[in-house]
Structures are given as C-alpha cells and as structure tokens.
Write a protein that binds this DNA or RNA. Structure first.
Lengths: 234, 234
DNA sequence: CGGCTCTTTGACCTAGTTCAAAGCGCGTGG
DNA sequence: CCACGCGCTTTGAACTAGGTCAAAGAGCCG
C-alpha cells in the first residue's frame, strides 16, 4: 500500500526535510487513517462540509475553484508534507476543490483531533500555525507575481518554485516531472496556455531548460533565476 | 485615548459583528496592551523579527511588500477586528510591512500569550484558525480575480468588498470614505492608477456611484454587482 | 501665493489574448 | 501491428485591454 508510487522516483514518504512533515505526520501512525487516491479523484469539493484537514504523504494534488464562466481555475499545487483543507476552517465549508494529479496517499485529521492536538501539543500548535502562515506568505508572493511580473518572469518563477519544493523534499532540483498539465499551470500562473507554451519554447531555445512531455531538466539555473527577475535588458 | 477617531464616523471599537472580534478582543482588557498609531506610522517592517500578532481595534491599515523595482506593492487592507502579523508565524520574520492609513489602535498578543491561549481556550483556537483561514480564502479570491477578471470587474469587486466589510462592522455599506490613496488601491487590485481612475469615472458617468475626494457613495448597488461579474454585453 | 501630493484625462503602444489549425504521443480496437 | 481517435501541446496571425508617457487639474498646507 505504501509503495504505490507513481511518476516521481524516490520514496517520498520518507522525506522529512519539509518543515511540517515531522510534527504532524509522526503523530499519524496510531490513530490517523491513511487513504490512497488515484489520478483525477477528488478529496473534497467546493461547498462540501468541512470535516477534516489532510496531509499529503505521497503524490501530488491541485486545488481549484470554479470561475463565473464555469471553467476551473487552479489556486495551488500540493506535494508531500503539504497540508490541505485548511480553507474549511473559515466557514466550515470548503471553498475549493482538491483533485489528485497522480496516485497519492493522505493522512486525515478530523476537526476534533486537531482541536485536541492543539490543546495538548506545543509542537503541533506551532507547526499548524507555521503551515498556514506559510500558505499566506506564498499566496502573497503569488499576488505580487501576478500584478508585477510579465509572463516570462512568472513562468520562470513557477519552475523555480517547483525546483525549490522538490529540493526541500530531497528530490532533484534540476530534473523532475510535472504531474500537472500545461492547462493547469497556465491557469495557476494566470496566462493563456499559448503564452505559457511560447515562453517554454523560448526557454528551450535559450538552452535554459528542456521539456520533453512532462519531464523537465533545468540546464542553467542561474539564467532561469535571472529570467525570474526583471528583464532590464530585453 | 479611545476617542481618537479619524475619517470614519462611528465608534468602531464597539462594533462586534465581525467574527473574530469577540473571542480575541474581549480577552484583551486585562493584560494586553493597546497602542495608538498615527497615519503613515509603521507597526512592523518586512524582515522584522516576529514577536506578536495584533488585532486592529480602530482605524485602518495596509500591508505591503517591496517589489524588485523598489516600489511598494499593497497586499491587503485591514479594518477593525482584523488580525495582522500572522505572516510572521512562518519563519519568525515578518514578510510584509504594516502601515497605518489613519489614526488607529491595536491590541498586541505576544507569541507566548498566543500559545498559552491556544492551549487553554477552545474559543481562541477556533477563532484564530478561522481568521487565518479567512485570509487564505480571501487571498484565493484575489488570485482568481487577478487572473480572470478585467479591470472593470476588479474595481467593482474591490468597492463591493469594502462595502461588505463596512456592513459587517455595522457601518454604512453604501456610503463610506476611503482611507487609502488611489495608488494604494491600484497597486492592490493590480492595475495602473490611470486605469483605476478611468474605470471610476466610467462608474460615475453610469451613475453607479459617486466619488468626491475620498468619499464614496454607491448609488446603484445592483449595477455595481453586475459590473463585478462578467460583462457579457460590453 | 507657491509648492506640495494626489488625481484625472488624452494619445500612443505593447504584451498577451484569442482564434484557428496543425502536430504529436498514446491507448484502443480491429 | 497498424490505423484511428482523442487529449494535449505547439505555432502562426490578428486584435485589444490595459500600460506608459506626458501634461494638466485640484485640494491642501505652510
């Protein structure tokens, strides 16, 4: 059961570099239930009554909301160690939908468990607060990126953020595969899929990276970092 | 001291409709310190060591970060009852700067106080989680708005969100004054100040609202709501 | 009154969207 | 094993929303 590991290579459950992994996940062995989900399966929908938060143990997932036009907008991607479902604390209804991008496992923490853990454990308190605070900071960076950066910068920042997340999880930071489609990425970073495609081909032509199918190899991390900032000379 | 009340009319400290007001602020009478700040004063800067979170009792404030170009980008506005400073939980350093927009008072909760309150009080736990979760949901809505909505929609949504916040605080939802500049607003909703100005004059010409200086009067709430959604007929 | 800051308005221009079509990898079924 | 269809991706060409630049109002304060 633990070995259902898809696209990505290593035993990601073991990885503990990610801040919130230790303090939340180690508590899970006894009473918390693991569950396995397949690609495209949905953990919760927008409007579902909030019952629990979850920590991703392996795989990956996307959070999305429905726009007025009826299409899906991606609000976040999640990797092992990440906590999902905290949007439900607000009004006890989930505001988003969570969909798995590949075979994944999660640990479930019911609202009651969270409350009692918060009461008992200082480690849990600081860990949950940090995780939520981290999301807030990430969201703010995203907002900044959307309002102040051009498409080239946003794409570069997105790739770099993935790279960072993989390295935090002790996976390669320069060679990884995307579990999401171009459409998902374009939605997340707020541009047309065609624009994303054009930027990616430009990066490949500049030998900054190569993408075959879903497999990304970053050839020139410094150049990519430069692209992520302001292009003064273009 | 309590009566230092600027631009906005009513005794805002008394307002308790806002969800997190009761459970956090009522605890403040005994041991927590009130502080008064003037317009343009700064509560904390990006990079400051995290020591406490604060609840705004009166007045208003803006959160901002510095862009690569050196100019300020507004990430959020705050009104009485709102909790600020939770960005510091992440890495124990504030990621943003908080600046007051008018004379304001805040209550301070040190990290230690928060931890002990979390351990002791179920009400406090749920209240803090809700407040943070609420911020997350708001950020996501903002992201959605930035990526999917045109300038007219974004401006309409911004005015409506202010209207909602004022009504939650038992102030008029159709007549209020802005404590922030056009530049702040434009930065927050991610457009050029000129675009914002044009949209506002368009709204005035359509008799949807009127703005004189900082004073906003919404004449046609339904029309404004219509503008906030997709303009199928334009 | 002069010098601020903030705001509005106009004219031009570009980054990125939209529309249309072709390419490509992959699974299925014959 | 190949052909077909399907989902995803790339590429091209035209269009436009909104940004940028420039300059003129309009409150405000010493």
């Amino acid at each position: 059961m633990e070995n259902v590991l898809p696209l990505r290579p290593n035993k990601i459950e073991r990885v503990s570099a990610y801040q919130s992994e230790d303090s939340i996940a180690t508590r899970s062995n006894t009473r918390n239930s693991h569950r396995i989900y397949q690609r495209k399966q949905v953990l919760y929908c927008a409007g579902d009554v909030f019952k629990a938060v979850y920590q991703l143990r392996s795989g990956s997932a996307k959070a999305s909301v429905c726009t007025v036009n009826g299409d899906e907008h991606i609000t976040d991607f999640f990797y092992p160690g990440d906590i999902v479902g905290v949007d439900g604390f607000d009004s006890f209804v989930h505001s988003q939908q969570l969909t798995f991008l590949e075979t994944s496992s999660v640990v479930c923490y019911t609202e009651r468990e969270i409350d009692s853990l918060l009461a008992k454990s200082e480690a849990f308190r600081s860990s949950l607060l940090r995780a939520m605070s981290h999301s807030l900071v990430r969201d703010q960076q995203m907002l900044l990126s959307l309002t102040n950066c051009c498409s080239v910068q946003r794409v570069a920042q997105f790739i770099l953020s993935l790279s960072k997340r993989f390295s935090e999880r002790r996976c390669s930071s320069v060679e990884f595969s995307l579990s999401m489609t171009r459409t998902d990425i374009a939605s997340y970073i707020g541009m047309a899929i065609e624009t994303l495609s054009r930027v990616l081909t430009a990066f490949q032509q500049a030998n900054i990276l190569s993408i075959k199918h879903r497999k990304v190899v970053i050839n020139d991390l410094d150049a990519l970092r430069a692209k992520a900032k302001v292009d003064l000379f273009l």
